[in-house]
Amino acid sequence: MTREISGRWAIHETMGAKPKAEFLGPGLQSVTLPIYLSAGLGVRPRTVLERVEGMVEAGTAEYLVIGNRPVGGNPFRLTGSSETWNTIFNRGELAKATLSITLEEYA
């Protein structure tokens, strides 16, 4: 998991002096999460990919919980996903896939 936390800043130009920086407040946090899906580990990769696709297209926002603790203080919205189909059996059954999801804080 990669988590990015930032602040929002404005730069004001001044005549004959260096620009002045002004802190506006915290920025939105973002998370990128790679996920390995394998039928051998008891999941149905295609079902998970379809659910994630539905969440991206519906604009769903949920709390991100890892280890029974929420990440950040606000829910995150799923802004995008990228999938790689690694192993497909001869009848078209997806056995292994790699999924990367991108989340942004929903304040």
Results as ranks from 00 to 15, higher is better:
E105A: 03
P75G: 09
Q29D: 15
V56D: 08
M1F: 09
H12R: 12
Q29M: 14
F76G: 02
I101C: 02
G73R: 10
L99F: 03
I5S: 04
R91P: 00
A107C: 05
W85H: 09
N68T: 13
A58H: 05
A17Q: 13
M55F: 10
E93C: 00
P26N: 11
G73A: 13
T102P: 00
S30W: 04
V65I: 15
V48E: 12
M55I: 05
T2I: 08
T14C: 08
G25A: 12
L94M: 06
T87R: 10
K18V: 06
I88S: 00
L103P: 03
A61E: 13
W9F: 14
P70S: 14
S82K: 10
Q29R: 15
L94Q: 01
L49F: 05
N68W: 09
L78Q: 04
K20H: 10
I5W: 01
F23D: 07
I5Q: 03
V31A: 05
I88N: 00
G54A: 14
L49T: 08
L103K: 03
L99Q: 03
L33I: 13
T98W: 00
R51E: 14
I66W: 05
E13T: 14
A21D: 00
P70K: 15
T47Y: 08
T14W: 05
K18S: 11
L49H: 05
V65G: 07
N86L: 08
S81C: 03
W9M: 11
R46Q: 15
A95K: 06
T98H: 02
L99S: 03
E22Q: 15
S81Q: 09
K20F: 07
G59K: 06
S100T: 15
T98A: 10
R69L: 15
W85Y: 11
P75M: 07
I101A: 04
G54S: 12
I88M: 09
G40P: 02
W85L: 13
I11Q: 11
G16I: 07
S82D: 10
